[in-house]
Design a protein around this nucleic acid. Sequence first.
DNA 1: AGCTAGCATTTCATCGTCGAAATGGGCCAG
DNA 2: CTGGCCCATTTCGACGATGAAATGCTAGCT
Lengths: 368, 368
Amino acid sequence: MTDRSDRPVTMAEVGAAAGVTDRTVSNVLSGKVPVRPETRAAVLRAVDELGYRLNATARGLRTGRTGTITLALPDMGYDYFSQLAHAVMTEADHFGWAVTIVQTGARPEREQALLTGTDPQISDGLIIQPYAVGPENGHRALRQHDQARHRPPIVLLGDRIINEAIDHVLMDNTPAARVATEHLIATGRAAIGVIGPDPADATPGSGAVRLEGYRQALRQAGLPWRPDLVRPAAAWRRAEGAAATDELLQAHPEVDALFCCNDDLALGAMYAVHRRGLRVPEDVAVVGFDNVTAATFSHPPLTTIDSGGPLIARTAVKLLAERLDPTSSAAPPRKVIADFHLVQRGSTAGTAVSTPDDVPRGGPAPRA
Amino acid sequence: MTDRSDRPVTMAEVGAAAGVTDRTVSNVLSGKVPVRPETRAAVLRAVDELGYRLNATARGLRTGRTGTITLALPDMGYDYFSQLAHAVMTEADHFGWAVTIVQTGARPEREQALLTGTDPQISDGLIIQPYAVGPENGHRALRQHDQARHRPPIVLLGDRIINEAIDHVLMDNTPAARVATEHLIATGRAAIGVIGPDPADATPGSGAVRLEGYRQALRQAGLPWRPDLVRPAAAWRRAEGAAATDELLQAHPEVDALFCCNDDLALGAMYAVHRRGLRVPEDVAVVGFDNVTAATFSHPPLTTIDSGGPLIARTAVKLLAERLDPTSSAAPPRKVIADFHLVQRGSTAGTAVSTPDDVPRGGPAPRA
DNA sequence: AGCTAGCATTTCATCGTCGAAATGGGCCAG
DNA sequence: CTGGCCCATTTCGACGATGAAATGCTAGCT
């Protein structure tokens, strides 16, 4: 026998030590085929003595299943995406799947590569929230996908339909943004700034559809549309939200409310308001979007749109699970539109400290 | 030829279409072996026409490399861990690696399975922050690891050495906690509560070592050790931090400062303080631990220990990269202790709104 | 023309596991 | 005592890619 000491132990070696074939070792470890108790014991002893570990890659090649799914998101540095990933991983765990997370950044070619399968991924399926790829190029990417044989299934997350032939889990952005804005108007605000979208940007992303909801609410209330109250943020994070808010309040001291396109921006906005010595909500009311954990506990707690992130994650995993189930994978493409609702908290109420009843409790107990 | 239309396209089929061997297709796609331009063009055309996609699993089996590393953390629902994951993924991207994230929860058997390799993972290496596995059982788990041939390398993160033979990236918890507590004492606080650790818990985890730093600071300042001011939190999150703080302030109105074992707890603590109608820092000063993004933008901004999370992540990936480099993988095990420093912000300063100069800027521009 | 050098392509074997079907041994019924 | 059956185990052959080494071809030199 050649010296294999630098290579992993194989089933054949375990079998040799236990006096059986590699196949029997496989039968013992999989448990799918009956094995005599003595044989099983002998095999398990050999496994233990040799320190044998199953080669998941070889199994994956043989079975065509890797037990891993890919989650592709723009960037994990956002509360919303990291909480979405958390929910996806927790749900995937129920199916016994590991989750490979890919940060696409703002790079369209990265998203294209994932959608077309050009990027060689070890995974049984893909959940992706495209940022840069829209219907125009998405169709092309996914036509290539269709044409290829036996490509892993895809579930798309986000705010627009990219391809009719693919499963989508969507947010109802425009109505949600309208509801958020209506709430500000109802509390008596007149000069409502917007933090996030770039009105000059033609790309129809989250920014555009949320801005549209804002405009609808203004129109319905008979308030004027003032483009100068819209401040784009290069990235939708706290720092950029603070900077944009600072500029807006500097230029327009009359602003008495802010509609922020996500909670990260809103938390940054509140920071900027406070830094200018103004009060939330007395001087400036603030509304966010997504209802991340931090929104519950900020000071004041942040009024926001609960866009159902965890439910979206669970739904996406379940859709993927159905596609991966060989008995029911030929169903027509599905579109799920997630429910949303407004969560009113102190950032728009009369008093700066509220006592919300939605403080989450419980869960596992790891430490940081 | 049999009907293979339900199976993926192979290199052999591409080769057949292009009039060459599967091997030549491989040569074209890998680029490592020179190929005549006409041949290359023919192959690429066939790839395009047939919609061929490389089977990463098969390559992984053949080469022994999957291009994926595993990151195992207790739970992604914590700001610290999600930001650590973000940093690991960003760094891994530089090496061309995908990252599979596994949430171990509080389950020791899950950690054991990862450390011993019992859990069949498709990955070239493991970065793990153990929560439940300590030196006592960790040694056993990793002895099994050593004994096995050709097991993927491991880098351990955290607060204690689990096995001398393995690479570690450590936090200097006790000194950091002492510095945090000393800062509270220096601002004139006398009744300093602690949120997080369970003094009755014998497990020497982050809680115990941070509590030890707190005690050292008290001792040095001649302040009395009062176990009744220590409030455990079942999970180190905002909700649990708020609940524990609420109880503590109820029982001990004289408390004028809180040392919280992480920023999530601290942000929850501030929430509870505000809800009781008290002010931060005038009535109760608050210090956190980890310096997550939210700490910069809270109201007031949170004084905290910057424990160098992103650097820890980068270091861990680099250590793994060295182990995976065949030319230099036999180096002795390394231990890196991350630097820390206190970041003073408004939650301990005289005024509730400060103007910190560490507001981060820039970065990519995805949206939520 | 004959020989060698150098490059492009192919041959061959192998990575470690598992599905399907064949084999062999033990037991019960006729 | 023997035929048939069932259960445990083995045989055989992929799965799809690639490292190493051999082959074939063209070009260049004498």
